[in-house]
Structures are given as structure tokens and as C-alpha cells.
Simulated scan of single mutants.
Amino acid sequence: MIIIGELINTSREEVEPAVKDRDKEFIQELAKKQEEAGVDYVDVNCGTLIREEPEALEWLVETVQEAVDVPLCIDSPDPKAIKQGLEAHEGKALVNSITAEDERYDEVLPLIKEYDANIVALVMNDNGMPDDATDRIEVATELVDNLLEDGIPAEDIFVDPIIQPIGTDSEMGEHILNAVEEISSKYEDIHITCGLSNISHGLPQRQLLNQAYLVLAMSRGMDSAILDPLDEKIMSLAQASDTLLGKDQYCSDYIKASKSGDLTV
């Protein structure tokens, strides 16, 4: 399971002032905690700082990479900010995101090629947000096929089927699961990711729903998620699910995690 740590995001109440004030110690400590929890990427997002986003994102990239060895997920709606973040990044980054919208695709694709980055492919086109599994599969097919034709390796693509809150549509959970299963079976080498906590937005005891949904989604083919890695239970469930799904040869990673005390029951 590829874990993308979600905590360095200026939409979080405590993070925005830290980025505005360039509080290096706070940001680096948050990054270190996520690395210690076992993330594969640390997400950096300062999208709420619209006027200063490119400069703030560049600072975030430099600041976080001073503190951790894992690569970053450069997360922005602004291609200028993405470019500035990529210029500051060392190694192969993950960019969030490209879509099938003509303008967005044409702006982001050259950056992915220039900086040899992995890319989150968000299943949205010029018709807007998808409604159900069928829409998600159709847009994902269009987007992935275009990326492959334009020379992006399949293993560099992370399809995001756009999880929306189940509190506003009781069928949303099943729509996403059906889409994940179809997309993962159609494209063997691509990854499928998601903003996991979107499923529980607006509901009580959100962690419980997030934990349960991660297990369900992994059983249908999802192999990545943007989540809170400091939730020890969800990290343990990700490890246990990988083991039960045959992705942990001889259960060696599970046994190692158990012996080191990294698993929470």
C-alpha cells in the first residue's frame, strides 16, 4: 500500500499560520512524524494561500525535504505553483493532479514530462464531476489512454476516482468500489489512489468510516491512499490488508511490524 501523508495542508487550522509565518520547526516536525509513521510520500499543499501559493509551495518543498528522505506529493490547482515546487524538489515527485479537462491537461502534461514526475490522474473532464461508477470508468479510460499515448509510463500514473461524501449520497461508497475494481483490472500496471477521508465528511466518528473503507477499497484493487498516517489503527489495517491480499510474501512485513510494535489492534 502506497501511503501519502496528508497533514501538511494549509486547509488545516494549525498549518496555515505555520506556512504564512514560515515556521520551519513546526512543518519539519510534522513531516518527520509522518515519515516515522511509514509514509511513502509527504503531501504538501498550500492551496488556501492563493496570492502567494507558488512561493509558499517552493518554501514547503525545500523545508520538508531538509527533514525527510521520502519524496513529496506536490499538491496544487495552480500549474505555476506546481512548476515552482517541482523545480525545488530533489528526486522523483508525485504531482496532484492532472485531469481530462483540456486546459488542465495541456498545462500539466509538459511539467510531468519535463520533471519526470509521477502523476495523480483525477477522473474529471470538461463535463465536470462524475456521477457514478460508469462515469468514473469512462473518464479514467479517456485520461489514462491519453497519458499512455503521450508517453507517461503506466507505473507513474495514480488514478483518483474522486471519493465524495457518503453522507450526501448513500450509494457513493459502492460507486467508488465498482470503479476501482474495473479500472484496476483494465490497467494492470497503474496505481489507484484516493483522498480517503472525503468518504466520511460531515459524519460522526470519521476515523471508523475511513478505516473500514480503506479495507474495502484495498480488496477491490486500490493500492494507494492520501490519509492521516498518525492514525495508528488505519496504518495497521493497511499492513494487515496487504498481507491478507497476498502482497506480503511469507507475511514477512507483517511479522516485522508486529515484532517492532508498529501494529495497533
Rank of each mutant, 00 (worst) to 15 (best):
P165N: 04
M218Q: 15
E66P: 06
E6S: 07
D40H: 15
A121R: 01
D150Q: 01
Y187P: 03
E232H: 11
L203F: 08
I190Y: 07
S97V: 08
P110F: 11
S258K: 14
I192E: 04
E14P: 06
T48M: 04
A56L: 02
I162K: 02
H191V: 07
Q65N: 07
I119A: 11
K32S: 02
G85Y: 05
E232G: 03
D231L: 11
A238C: 11
P165H: 02
M172N: 14
E25W: 05
N96F: 10
I234E: 08
T48P: 00
D253M: 11
S97M: 13
Y213H: 15
E188H: 10
N9R: 00
K92W: 06
V139D: 00
D23G: 09
L111Y: 12
E188W: 04
R22G: 03
P153C: 07
K259D: 08
D75F: 04
V68T: 00
T243E: 11
I82W: 10
A240Q: 12
Q65C: 02
T10W: 00
E232V: 03
C194T: 00
L237W: 09
E182K: 15
K259T: 06
T193G: 04
E171A: 08
Y115A: 05
E14Q: 13
F158G: 05
L86V: 11
T243P: 05
E174A: 10
T243K: 14
P77C: 06
